[in-house]
Computed example of a mutant assay.
Amino acid sequence: MDKIIISPSKYVQGEDVLASLAKYVAPIGSRPMAIADAFVTNLVGDTVRTSFSEQNIELSMEEFNGECSRPEIDRLREISASAKADVIIGIGGGKTLDTAKAMAFYQKVPVVIVPTIASTDAPTSALAVIYTPDGEFSEYLMIPTNPNMVVMDTKIIAGAPSRLLVSGMGDALSTYFEARANAISGKSTMAGGAPTRAAQALAKLCYETLLADGLKAKISVENGLSSPAVENIIEANTYLSGIGFESSGLAAAHAIHNGLTKLEECHHLFHGEKVAFGTLVQLVLENADIEEIRTVIAFCKELGLPTNLFAMGVKELNRDKLLEVAEASCAEGETIHNMPFEVTPIKVLSAILTAHELGA
């Protein structure tokens, strides 16, 4: 199997970097179209427009209606075609960014991704999640290339609710452990091959950065401020985790997250909050060293990430419901089968209950 690593062509991060957005976009397109929802447009629209005005570049800016659906993608594609846009810029949260990726893919133009939060590692990936107009999951759009550029304004991100950054740390927490399991099993990654040493090193650095700077970063953003720790965690949540998961592989933690969506009590949780518990379950499933498990539990508790089912909103331990979670985690095609041993629903149920007790 060939070794493959994939990534955005350029990653830019810094405080107030949004004011320089046009300078970074100019080399890849002269007729940019930006999309953002109403809230984000109100938050950063003037800064973005001024940036392009100062570079004498005409910017088309359209409002994203809130759902990454086929009708919304098609609507915005028509507008971009009329404007003869030669680069698409997505500014905001995950659905806005995925819509921009899809638009650019179908229009065959470059895309620039500008997250205003750091709650997942999706911005760097060659993937968009498509929903129905009513918000139900529809399909994954697998894009052959990663975004041309990802731009992270740490001042904007630090001003978002701290729970979003913490959720991003929960998502990033799984990266190293899933990469480690995938390396042992030798299964193919989302990049379509075996992991490179570089991707594995980024996954490990991601974990080390979380442990070193996670709590400090949380405290800073609770005060609405950036700091060196916030800068490091934004990079860990977005770039290190993004390259780490896509080019080193997913395993049990994200599959268990998918299984947890079966529990209605968990629907209020962010993606990374469920992944954090999924990481703990994976460590139990693979019988990791108890000190490593304790380190992960302590990290989650100091940040406020859930370490047991009760903390996720589950009222009682119903084994039939938890078995449904375990069965969904083990569905055909799930990434749990990238673990370096055979995984069954009963083994997952045992790991869930054990993780719950250890994290109580």
Score class of each variant (00 low, 15 high):
K3I: 04
I5Y: 00
S7T: 13
K10T: 14
Y11E: 04
G14C: 06
V17A: 01
A19W: 00
L21H: 03
A26F: 09
S30Y: 08
R31D: 05
R31A: 12
P32N: 01
A34P: 02
A36L: 15
D46W: 01
D46G: 03
V48E: 03
V48H: 02
V48C: 03
S51A: 06
F52V: 02
F52H: 01
Q55V: 00
N56L: 10
L59Q: 05
S60H: 12
E62F: 00
G66D: 08
C68T: 09
E72G: 06
E72C: 06
D74G: 00
R77V: 01
R77P: 02
A81C: 07
A81D: 08
S82Y: 09
A83G: 01
A83E: 05
A85N: 02
D86F: 12
V87T: 09
D98G: 01
D98R: 02
A100S: 09
K101W: 13
A102E: 02
M103N: 07
V109R: 10
V111W: 08
T116L: 04
A118Q: 03
T120W: 04
D121G: 04
A126Q: 05
A126D: 13
P133T: 03
D134Q: 15
D134N: 11
G135S: 12
F137H: 12
Y140L: 11
M142Q: 13
I143T: 09
P144V: 14
N146M: 06
P147Q: 08
P147S: 13
P147C: 13
T154E: 09
I156K: 05
I157F: 12
I157Q: 09
A158D: 02
A160N: 04
L165Q: 09
S167C: 14
M169W: 03
A172S: 10
L173M: 14
T175E: 12
A183P: 06
A183V: 05
I184N: 10
S185W: 14
S188F: 02
T189Y: 15
T196V: 06
C206H: 06
L211S: 10
A212M: 14
A212S: 15
A212E: 15
L215W: 08
S227A: 00
E231W: 05
I234Q: 11
E235V: 07
E235M: 11
A236E: 08
N237E: 11
Y239R: 13
Y239K: 12
G242K: 05
I243G: 06
G244S: 13
S247F: 09
S248G: 11
H254G: 02
I256K: 01
N258I: 07
L260A: 01
T261Y: 07
L263R: 02
E264W: 00
E264V: 04
E264S: 07
E265A: 14
H268M: 00
L269Q: 14
H271C: 06
E273R: 08
E273S: 00
V275S: 01
A276I: 04
G278H: 02
T279V: 08
L280P: 06
V281K: 00
E291D: 14
V296R: 01
A298S: 15
F299W: 09
G304K: 12
N308Y: 09
F310I: 05
L317Q: 12
L323P: 11
S329D: 10
E334D: 12
E334C: 06
I336Y: 03
